[in-house]
């Protein structure tokens, strides 16, 4: 009987090695590519009609667009418009990857810490570069909250610095841990269904409920990742 975390093991589908580095195309890579394809097909095919009065699919595509656009506008303001393609791609990528992972037998690419960390790291570096480019050294005033008494600086500044540098970790671990925990839990209850035979109906019912919960989590975590990206972007663009 396999461990419930066995499912996260990567299997190379197309072995590939470049310059001594293993770049095999794994099932995780496959599902990332599928996520890209699904997101693109969903958004372009739904908009093919370009109807004035949208149908079901077009409404959904427009809804995702306006959802992210509103998030960016409310949290960053008009300055954030430039970064909309990136934030929108990020949201669609995470959401699609999370939701595709809910298909039995599919691989959830976002349950890999390195994947979520790479995305969070890009956000972190990007936000820091944008902040430095816009405000120069004044950007470091971010580490001292305005209005706080000066004598608090020795305590506040280290805390702010630590919390700033912890951002990519908290951002990536939140998504990764949620995805991994959900799938591990489903696997555990799934093994109960197999082990209990006829009485497996009880954990089966639980799994159905958990699936619903996990679909909610898939949306929620994509939203959380995106909104935190927006907030970090706001910090960099407008300081506090």
């Amino acid at each position: 009987m396999a461990s419930p975390v066995e499912q996260f093991k990567l299997k190379p589908l197309v072995p590939l090695e470049i310059g001594g580095v293993d770049l095999s195309f794994t099932q995780s890579s496959l599902w990332m590519v599928i996520a890209v394809a699904v997101a693109t097909v969903f958004l372009t095919a739904a908009m093919r009609g370009r109807s004035l009065v949208p149908g079901r699919w077009q409404s959904m595509a427009e809804l995702s667009y306006e959802f992210v656009a509103n998030m960016l506008r409310e949290n960053v303001g008009s300055e954030g418009r430039k970064y909309f393609p990136f934030v929108f791609s990020l949201f669609m990528f995470i959401l699609t990857a999370n939701l595709l992972g809910m298909i039995p037998g599919a691989y959830t690419s976002t349950s890999q810490i390195i994947v979520t960390f790479a995305m969070a790291f890009v956000v972190f570096i990007g936000v820091t570069v944008i902040g430095l480019a816009r405000h120069g050294l004044h950007f470091f005033s971010l580490f001292f909250p305005t209005g706080a008494p000066v004598y608090m600086a020795p305590i506040l500044v280290p805390i702010e610095i630590i919390s700033y540098f912890v951002r990519p970790i908290s951002l990536s671990v939140r998504l990764f841990a949620n995805m991994m925990a959900g799938h591990t839990m489903l696997k555990v209850f799934g093994s109960f269904v197999v082990a209990l035979g006829i009485f497996g109906v009880a954990p089966m019912v639980l799994i159905v409920a958990l699936m619903g919960l996990e679909i909610l989590v898939a949306f929620l975590q994509a939203y959380v990742f995106t909104i935190l990206t927006c907030l970090y972007l706001n910090d960099a663009i407008n300081l506090h």
Partner: peptide, 28 residues
């Protein structure tokens, strides 16, 4: 497994970004 994962993430995300910014977003 990290190099391959980061590599394929970068590749697929770059493609997605291009498709979104060039096709999907203008269309919507």
């Amino acid at each position: 497994t990290y190099p391959t994962q980061v590599f394929w993430l970068v590749v697929s995300f770059a493609i997605l970004y291009l498709l979104m910014s060039q096709v999907a977003i203008p269309r919507i």
